[in-house]
């Protein structure tokens, strides 16, 4: 039996959008100890946009990101990067993990951490030359951390550590940047510095996807959102997807009035 014409066109359009998209998630499901943390999430992130993954604590936002990247193993579903597998797209994908996920007492200087972003370029034994030094310093300059290059990472403030993580991702020179709570626990200056970098990446044609929990800054920072709480609740441009109804479902009515009002003015 032949499918109706409209369905075929719609499917074609969707497939074309999926081909162009830097990241498509289909049926992503992740469980910890038999309890679903993420259940059957579909999402298509659009190229050249800054997208936010929004939801309450424990909504599975970080888990979704980590599952897409293969950091945790999904129970079901798949992630498609640039119309292909992650394995074939690694040079185009950069990841900024949650700052709290590593031990900052590790014996490393700021430059050592940023240089990790050059690993796929250098390989096992490639010589770390002057041009690589230049890439590390350029990445540090973009986040305003060039003066801290030889500091031990444990001596940095939380905001500075977050900027070092972003610089490492910048050194990867990717097309898609995935950030896990980049604004969590950082000072206002760092927050401004990070969003400036993310907007610059967008204007260079890059795509940014960030897990985010501060509802007051969503409209200011993001072009598109995925609102979720274990399941997807809404997705699309901020104007249509970041609605009181969607938030009501996501936060189970626990959202207090005024939480969406920006709480601080950019200085």
């Amino acid at each position: 039996m032949q499918a109706p014409l409209e369905d075929v066109t719609a499917r074609d359009a969707r497939e074309r959008a999926d081909q162009d998209s830097p990241l498509v998630l289909r049926g992503m499901t992740v469980a910890y100890d038999q309890k679903p943390a993420v259940f059957s999430v579909d999402a298509t992130f659009r190229s050249g946009k800054i997208s936010g993954i929004i939801g309450p604590n424990g909504a599975g936002k970080s888990t979704l990101l980590r599952a897409a990247l293969g950091v945790v193993k999904p129970l079901a579903g798949r992630a498609t990067f640039f119309g292909s597998t992650l394995a074939r797209s690694r040079n185009r994908v950069a990841y900024v993990p949650q700052r709290a996920s590593v031990d900052w007492d590790f014996p490393a200087r700021v430059v050592d951490v940023v240089a990790q972003g050059l690993y796929r370029r250098l390989g096992l034994l490639g010589r770390f030359g002057r041009e690589h030094d230049g890439m590390v310093m350029a990445a540090l300059e973009r986040v305003g951390m060039e003066d801290f290059a030889s500091r031990q990472i444990g001596q940095l403030s939380g905001g500075q550590q977050q900027r070092v993580f972003l610089a490492r991702a910048l050194a990867q020179d990717a097309r898609l940047y995935l950030l896990d709570e980049p604004f969590a626990g950082v000072d206002a200056a760092t927050e401004r510095a990070i969003i400036k970098v993310l907007k610059a990446l967008r204007s260079e044609g890059g795509t940014v996807i960030a897990v985010h929990h501060d509802l007051s800054t969503v409209e200011e920072y993001f072009d598109e959102v995925l609102v979720m709480n274990v399941r997807k609740i809404s997705a699309g441009p901020v104007e249509t997807a970041f609605t009181p109804e969607a938030l009501d479902i996501a936060y189970g009515g626990r959202l207090e009035p005024g939480m969406r009002v920006p709480q601080k003015e950019p200085a």
Binding site: R90, Y95, V102, Q116, L124
Partner: peptide, 22 residues
């Protein structure tokens, strides 16, 4: 000597190391 870089990266940040394909 040979595996210095993967050892250092995966010891510091295993999640990031995974996304590099290590």
């Amino acid at each position: 000597a040979v595996f210095w870089r993967p050892l250092a990266i995966s010891t510091f940040d295993e999640g990031f190391a995974k996304t590099l394909g290590l």
